[in-house]
Simulated scan of single mutants.
Amino acid sequence: MLNKKEQSELAEKFRCTFKDNSLYRLSPSSCMDESTLRVQLLWIQQTMEAANLRAAASMLAKRYSFVVVAALYSFIVFQKKINASTKNVSLHTEEVKTMWLPKVFISEIETTEVTEENHEILLDELLDELFAYQLEPIWSALRKVTKISKLTLWENVAVYIHWLYDLLLANEEIDNMQVQKDLRYVLEEAEGHHFGSYHNNQLVRYSSPPQYVEKQKQEIRVRQTCCLSYQTGAKETYCRTCPVICKSKKGVSVHD
């Protein structure tokens, strides 16, 4: 079971909530139904002032990625596997703002303790719950409704998992060896069937090392696809990791 301290930590780091105070709710099942999904995307488009449904779809994928990183954080740090089934998690909007930052609602806080004996089995079960049974069906529906590429949707998730990776490696209180082992497995080694009807891991193509971007004078992990966030609200600017600006002829050089 997630104790109060752990619940607070998930709430602070990953916008999790354990109380249903939602004004607007997006359940996994509703996101898998094309007709319902279209209505939800129209709401997201209006709320975020997005240029089109493709941009709204990408934003939904980015927000849904917090379900993944919260579950992985609990698994690695608390050594507790949360119930990440489609019946136990959903996105709850408690206030409507242009940024649209919904919370990850976890209905039941019962967990399974992760031990050396069950570690590999439980991690595979978690990946099935997150990817094969949840994200892949949602990505398929988003693809059908908006024609957005699944490459963009999977990279949205990969970006947040890499962010989690960096966050955990910077924490000296956590076993770095186990962090690297677990996240390497998720990002590179897990078999394709954990992501749906695939032969290959859908995140491995996004595991290239950071590149030195001359314009920004730092190493960053340049995206392969544009997340379309520049098409929302009044932003009209590209992310600092966007391939549109980072992969220009004078924009990027790679360290040997």
Rank of each mutant, 00 (worst) to 15 (best):
V157N: 06
V77P: 01
F75Y: 11
A55S: 15
A55G: 04
R63D: 14
T152S: 13
A50W: 08
K62T: 10
I148T: 12
A61H: 07
W154G: 10
D124K: 15
T111G: 10
K150L: 08
E94G: 05
T93E: 04
K62G: 02
V145M: 00
T111I: 06
K144A: 13
L130S: 09
L151H: 14
K62A: 12
S107W: 02
W100R: 05
C31P: 01
A55V: 00
Y160R: 15
T152A: 13
V159M: 11
Q79R: 15
Y133C: 11
N156K: 12
E110P: 00
W100Y: 13
I138Q: 03
R63Q: 15
V67N: 08
L164D: 07
L91G: 06
F131C: 04
L142I: 03
F105H: 07
S85C: 09
P137M: 00
W139I: 04
T111F: 04
L126N: 07
S107V: 02
V68K: 02
W43N: 01
Q79N: 14
S74C: 13
I82C: 09
S30Y: 07
S140H: 10
E110K: 12
I148L: 14
S107I: 00
E110G: 00
W163A: 14
I106E: 06
S65P: 01
E94Y: 01
F131Q: 04
I161K: 08
E136F: 07
K147P: 00
I106S: 11
D124G: 05
V68L: 03
F131I: 01
E155W: 07
T112W: 00
I44N: 05
N88H: 05
L60D: 05
K150F: 00
